[in-house]
């Protein structure tokens, strides 16, 4: 996953190396020839190379031991039947078969997909609309700063607040009463929680993506708009031929970001509605992440580490496939400007 936002400043090539700024190597040859053009490098380069172990070593070791090894371990555990203690029994792909027959997993994974696609679409449409409105609005900095803030708040907070706002005697119902709604829906009924979570997520996440898209739109130099005005382009034409093509790469980045972050969603589901009875949210609102956690750590039944990791590994597979597809679909030559 390469993210392209900084490029227009630094230049074209994705892995733009600082050396290419030296006058001698400025010609835009392919990377290989550039590397070949300085075989030994200067003495400082040689010295620098010796710093590999002390500089990269600690980060590499920590990252490998605490991130990559567990990730590989997850794949390994997912091939076993294991309750966390005692012997591991190798069962091959049985866990995957088992969770696909598990209604609970299917609904959890379905919810994750709903978050990913439905909430994702809503966020993107809204964020793009907001970007267009914000682009030349008076006081846009204030507005932008305010709508960004929810991104810094733990999603737990929204979950807890929703419990207060939507409870039967709560604020929403007291607002609806004067409007003649005497029989409001049971907001926090088990079946209604997940749609509410989706709405909450749209509200709290849109601002963040608006900020990112705006960073892309702000990068478009004003003379393009002036040119549009001179050429008599309509608002739609301006959108279609200037704004969209020039922010395309930012859209791609946002899509990748949302794919990754939506699959992780856990906290808000965990506490949504305030108190959730036995400490586990109703199964109708589970996501794949919740499924993994409950199956391994809830203490309600024998931990099924195999099935739990299998679910997590499938989430990872989902991310990988989508990111690859997205990069394919969004790949077009970035417009230089």
């Amino acid at each position: 996953m390469t993210l392209h936002l900084t490029e227009p400043r630094t230049g074209g090539a994705p892995a733009h190396s600082p050396e290419s700024r030296k006058p001698g190597s400025r010609k835009p040859g392919p990377r290989k020839s550039r590397r070949g053009s300085r075989p030994g490098g200067s003495s400082i380069d040689v010295q620098r190379k010796k710093l590999l172990i002390p500089f990269v070593g600690p980060a590499f070791v920590l990252y490998t031991v605490l991130f990559i090894v567990p990730a590989l371990g997850a794949v390994w555990i997912s091939l076993h039947k294991w309750a966390g203690s005692g012997p591991m029994k190798f069962v091959g792909l049985d866990n995957y078969g088992r969770i696909f027959r598990d209604q609970l997993f299917l609904s959890s994974f379905g919810n994750t997909l709903l978050l990913l696609f439905v909430v994702g679409t809503a966020i993107f449409v809204l964020a793009f609309a907001l970007t267009l409105v914000l682009r030349d609005m008076a006081g846009k900095k204030i507005a932008r700063n305010v709508i960004f803030f929810p991104h810094l708040i733990n999603a737990l907070v929204f979950g807890v607040l929703a419990g207060f706002i939507f409870n039967p005697g709560g604020m929403v119902n007291s607002l609806l009463a004067p409007l003649g709604v005497t029989d409001p829906p049971k907001w926090l009924a088990q079946d209604n929680i997940f749609p509410l979570i989706m709405v909450t997520l749209v509200c709290t996440t849109t601002g963040y993506f608006t900020t990112i898209l705006m960073a892309g739109v702000d990068r478009i130099p004003p003379y393009y708009y002036e040119d549009c005005a001179l050429a008599g382009a309509s608002a739609f034409q301006r959108l279609r031929y200037v704004i969209l093509p020039l922010t395309w790469d930012v859209f791609g980045t946002c899509a990748v970001l949302w794919t990754i972050s939506s699959v992780k969603i856990f906290e808000i589901v965990w506490v949504f509605g305030g108190s959730s009875g036995a400490g586990v949210p109703p199964t109708q609102s589970w996501t794949a992440a919740v499924y993994t956690y409950v199956n391994a750590f809830s203490g309600q039944s024998t931990p099924a580490y195999g099935a739990a990791t299998a679910s997590a590994v499938l989430s990872l597979a989902l991310i990988s496939v989508l990111v690859v597809l997205l990069r394919r679909a969004m790949r077009r030559d970035a417009v230089e400007f």
């Binding site: 605490l66 567990p70 997850a74 555990i77 794949a288 993994t292 679910s311 991310i319």
Partner: peptide, 23 residues
Amino acid sequence: LSLYFILGLGIPAQVILIPLFVM
């Protein structure tokens, strides 16, 4: 190495949860 580090950006926390706990 850069690619290796970037790889981690795409791995959600629930994947490493259980192995990490065990380790």
